[in-house]
Structures are given as structure tokens and as C-alpha cells.
């Protein structure tokens, strides 16, 4: 078995990443990137050399063998897919996502990686509209869950849960303040110019007889939009 410790895998991965960007890989590149001592790098390279994963002449350049490159790529792909899952899908912030991906990549099985890849790819192939709906649905589910939790723990009253929803989930007569408009949304410009802005209060006035679109009041006028468009407007319920 060709077992590599997590730290050795990290070295291998780093060599791959440097080699993708630079013509040659030197010990000092690795030192800089991983923020470790040169001695440790040389030690690690030596082991990798023994395992026939890299070629390294003394004081010369480091080169991945075919086998080394394949191993490194596998780890790197795991890293990438985990990062996509954490950051793009789950909305974990970049730094945490990178950190966690760096840890988990060494322990996760091929099979699980494959399943995660499929899931992430599925979500990313969804059209923008569906993705928005999915994410809004997911967000609302989490908020509701949090709200329930808050209600059950109500007595100690420490759990602060804000009532943030997307506009499509407001009920008739509910008043809310706009928190933000999804900056990726294609209708942002149009909404902005009509006064749909962060900080503005909106009231849901009506739903069309057939269930869609909705009629909202803001800045003293009636605006109508479809629920699927209201998804990109995040609001905080006021009453």
C-alpha cells in the first residue's frame, strides 16, 4: 500500500499547484506557500522521492513523476469539490471553506467524493431561477427550523433569531424591510431604479386571483412582480 500522511499529501498537492503556475518548482516556493522550514520540505521531498512520486536532484528543481502527478491531482480534485460544496452550495465563507477542505481531503473516500461531486454538479447545472428557488427554500427551511428551536427554548430567551425571509414568503398584509437584493440577480437594475432598495419598507398587498404575481406597496406606489422574482429580495419582517 502506498499510504501517505496528510502532511505528505499536502506537499504533493502544493508541488502540483506550483507546477501549474510556474515553469519549475523549487524548494523555496514550497517553503513560502506552506510557511514551513526548508529543512522540513527537504525531508518530505526525500520521502516522496523514495516513494517514486517526485524526482529531485539535490539543490535542483522538483518534478512530479507520472504516478506523483496522478496522486496529487486526485487530492487536488477532492479539495476543489469540497470547497465548492462548502462555499458555493452551503455558503460557508471562503477562508473556513478552504481550511476545512484542506483537512477533509486527506480522509474522505473516493466513493463519497464521487457522490459529492455528482450532487454539486447537479446543483450547479440548475438554471439560475431554480437555483435561487432552491437556495431560498433552503434558507427559509433553516430559518424556520431556527425559529422552532427558539420557540422551544423560549424561556432562557438568549437565542436571537432574526425573521429574515425572501419577499415571496411574506403573507398578505405583512410588512417588511428590504435587507438586500441578490447582487447576481439579472433584475437588480430594474428593481433598483423602481426604488426597491435596502432599507425600504414594503407591504404585501395582494396576490393575483390565480396565485401569482403579487402586489406590493413601497414608496407610496403599487408594484407587481412574480413570486419567482421576489425570491431575490431578502427582507426582514416588521409586523
Amino acid at each position: 500500500m502506498n499510504f501517505l500522511s496528510p502532511s505528505l499529501e499536502d506537499y504533493l498537492e502544493t508541488i502540483l499547484m506550483v507546477s501549474l503556475q510556474e515553469k519549475v518548482v523549487r524548494v523555496k516556493d514550497i517553503v513560502k506557500l506552506l510557511n514551513v522550514k526548508a529543512a522540513s520540505v527537504i525531508g518530505a521531498i526525500k520521502i516522496l522521492n523514495e516513494k517514486k512520486l517526485v524526482n529531485h536532484e539535490k539543490y535542483g528543481y522538483i518534478e512530479l513523476t507520472t504516478k506523483g502527478e496522478m496522486t496529487a491531482k486526485k487530492i487536488y480534485e477532492k479539495h476543489q469539490i469540497l470547497f465548492r460544496l462548502f462555499h458555493k452550495v452551503l455558503g460557508v465563507d471562503v477562508q473556513t471553506a478552504v481550511k476545512d477542505a484542506c483537512q477533509i481531503e486527506h480522509y474522505i473516500s473516493e466513493e463519497t467524493t464521487k457522490k459529492i461531486t455528482e450532487l454539486v454538479e447537479y446543483i450547479e447545472t440548475l438554471s439560475d431561477k431554480k437555483k435561487d428557488l432552491w437556495l431560498s427554500d433552503f434558507g427559509n427551511f433553516l430559518r424556520e427550523a431556527a425559529l422552532k428551536k427558539k420557540n422551544t427554548q423560549n424561556k432562557d430567551g438568549r437565542n436571537q433569531v432574526s425573521s429574515i425571509l425572501t419577499l415571496n414568503n411574506l403573507k398578505i398584509g405583512q410588512k417588511a424591510k428590504i435587507i438586500k437584493i441578490n447582487p447576481e440577480s439579472k433584475i437588480k437594475k430594474q428593481l433598483l431604479s423602481m426604488g426597491v432598495l435596502p432599507g425600504v419598507e414594503v407591504t404585501v398587498r395582494k396576490v393575483a386571483p390565480l396565485g401569482d404575481p403579487i402586489d406590493i406597496i413601497l414608496k407610496g406606489y403599487h408594484l407587481t412582480l412574480r413570486k419567482e422574482e421576489a425570491v431575490c429580495i431578502e427582507v426582514e419582517v416588521l409586523e
Binding site: 430594474q190 423602481m194 402586489d215 403599487h222 408594484l223 407587481t224 412582480l225
Partner: peptide, 12 residues
């Protein structure tokens, strides 16, 4: 097969 344009309209 794509989606349609948004409906964002004032009710005067």
C-alpha cells in the same frame, strides 16, 4: 426552453 423575462410592473 429557457425561462421568460421578469414581470416587474407598476400598478398605476
Amino acid at each position: 426552453k429557457q425561462e421568460v423575462a421578469p414581470l416587474i410592473m407598476e400598478l398605476p
